Simulated scan of single mutants.
Amino acid sequence: MNHTDTPTITLTTERLPGHPWIWSAQVRKPERHLPPGSVVRIVDAAGRFVGHGFWNGHARVALRVLSTDEAARIDADFIAARIARAVALRREVLKLDDAGNAWRVVNSEGDGLSGLVVDRYADTLVIEYFAAGMWRLREAIEAALREHFPGATLYAFAEQHVQKQESFDCHSGEAPAPVRVTEHGLTFHAAPGAGHKTGFFADQRDNRRRFAELARGRRVLDLCCNSGGFAIHAMAAGAREAIAVDADAGILDIARANAEANGVDVRFEAADLFDWLRAAIDRGERFDAIVLDPPKLTRDRRRVTQALKKYFAMNRTAVDALTPDGLLLTCSCTGLVGADDFLDTLRRVGLSAARDVQVLDLRGAGADHPVAANVPEGRYLKAAFCRVS
């Protein structure tokens, strides 16, 4: 498409807001209807070029800026170049093929491809669409991915609320067969395309290894263990004992198979976190290392205060099961909860429990989840490594 053919969208402000998302209130409504996901040229209120991106008059995010280079064309070649750059970061710079075969290939704004996430699980690529514009370019996206992952199975999906907000229909078809993935020398079951039931979250890869290093010789408790990654890594690295708890009995079948596949002994128990912890504390059980990695607590800004209260309650109870100078790795994947608020919650936990909480390290997702400096909300995962005396 030539620039002369590209529709122009005008902002209500002079210059670009500095964030790749531009809300409908910041945009003058175009004179003619443009289909959701249309590629547009963006100018400011003074008529000066500021970027190229996707337009969607039906969505809360009316514009997604993809490039501020006036000579750029948002087409198959653009997509191919951005995907090639993303893959090169993972393979040539981060050397992720050495770490395993489960990693994020494209991380939306972090890779300059707003509205697109691609995850690799061995020879299966899961392509998640968050924007109608990316969905319209799906053939180019799939062709580019096949260049770098020849023979891979590609599975595309979009959550229902995203399809509704963005006005596109993604018919995913049958989810791919479960696969075995490798991570730092261990193997895990993954069910790509099963949403939060994938059984494997690559974003914690480096945190699992670091926790395992610190937990050598310790008695480990893995809370909200999902498929047992932290406990299994810890036992493989020399932990003395590991118990793992999750409310989902189904995922624990996968966790037990993971432990068996790696030749480690972990005791898995299906239970509510609070019920299990209180009973263990009443029995006098204590642990030298605890990991607490609950699922996302809210997507709603109005419920952030409630989420923080729950983080406080979970951590406050976990601390009572921790030996003096015990290791606590506590995580939050709720993007709306900022690092400062999460750390303040830990401060209040320490005060309430009359325990000193030393934050040794505050980490996030692995480097295959890069965050654009102008999209701080992309830094969703907080993983605080603490010593509690």
Rank of each mutant, 00 (worst) to 15 (best):
R15P: 02
P20N: 10
P20L: 11
R28H: 15
P30R: 04
E31H: 10
R32W: 04
I42L: 09
G47Q: 01
G47R: 01
W55L: 04
N56V: 05
V61S: 00
R64A: 00
E70H: 10
A71V: 08
A72R: 03
A81P: 07
R82Y: 09
R90D: 13
K95A: 15
D97C: 06
D97W: 00
W103I: 00
R104M: 14
E109T: 14
L113N: 08
G115K: 09
L116C: 06
V117N: 03
V117E: 05
V117Q: 10
V117K: 02
L125D: 05
M134T: 13
W135G: 08
R136P: 08
L137V: 13
A140Y: 11
A143E: 15
L145I: 08
L145H: 06
E147Y: 06
A158V: 05
E159R: 12
F168T: 04
C170F: 02
C170L: 14
S172P: 08
P176S: 14
P178G: 09
R180N: 13
T182V: 03
G185R: 07
G185K: 11
A190T: 06
F200Q: 09
A202L: 13
D203Y: 01
Q204M: 12
R209C: 00
R210Q: 11
F211C: 04
A212P: 12
R219N: 09
R219F: 06
V220K: 03
L223V: 05
L223S: 05
A231K: 04
H233A: 15
A234R: 10
M235P: 00
A237L: 10
R240A: 15
A242F: 13
D246E: 07
I251D: 08
L252T: 04
D253P: 00
N258H: 09
A259S: 09
E260I: 10
A261Q: 05
D272M: 08
L277F: 07
A279F: 05
D282C: 06
R286L: 12
R286S: 15
D288R: 01
A289T: 06
A289S: 00
L297R: 03
V304S: 10
F312R: 00
M314Y: 11
A318Q: 06
A321N: 12
A321P: 02
L328A: 05
T334S: 02
G338I: 01
L343Q: 03
D344V: 09
D361S: 15
G364H: 15
A367D: 13
A367H: 14
P370N: 13
G378T: 03
A383D: 06
A383S: 07
F385T: 05
R387T: 14
